[in-house]
Design a protein around this nucleic acid. Structure first.
Length: 111
DNA sequence: CCCTTGACTATCT
DNA sequence: GAGATAGCCAAGG
């Protein structure tokens, strides 16, 4: 059973469900990929309504910080879930992955 | 209708 | 690079 309340939910959830482990997307990117440009805020709403089985934690801000206030339970949980799949947070920002291209090998080794 | 509220973002200091 | 600002837009009161 789906509990969506907005016409945006189904497409947004579909896009998020396809984010691969170890990767992240921004709210705006998800919105665009779902076909709803300028609806980043709808993505956050959709996440709050999503089932826990959805990899909601792979969605972060466009500047690679987490959307929750630091120190909050949600923040800690998201950070842990990401950490579980090798995505770490440094200085409040998600560390870019090798698959995100143009990252230097020495930078990868240094982290 | 008008106003407020956001798990947002791009841009400027 | 952190903070302020303005733009964004659906929901709900």
């Amino acid at each position: 059973m789906s509990n969506f309340q907005s016409k945006f939910d189904p497409e947004i959830w579909r896009v998020v469900s396809q984010i691969k482990s170890g990767r992240v997307m921004s709210y705006g990117e998800v919105a665009r990929a779902a076909g709803f440009p300028r609806h980043a805020r709808m993505v956050s709403k959709a996440m709050s309504r999503a089932e826990m089985s959805l990899p909601w934690f792979r969605v972060v801000r466009s500047n690679r910080s987490l959307a929750f206030k630091k120190g909050t339970e949600a923040y800690k949980q998201q950070r842990k879930l990401l950490s579980n799949e090798g995505v770490l947070i440094k200085k409040g920002k998600v560390i870019p992955l090798a698959s995100d291209s143009d990252i230097q090998i020495d930078e990868l080794l240094w982290r």
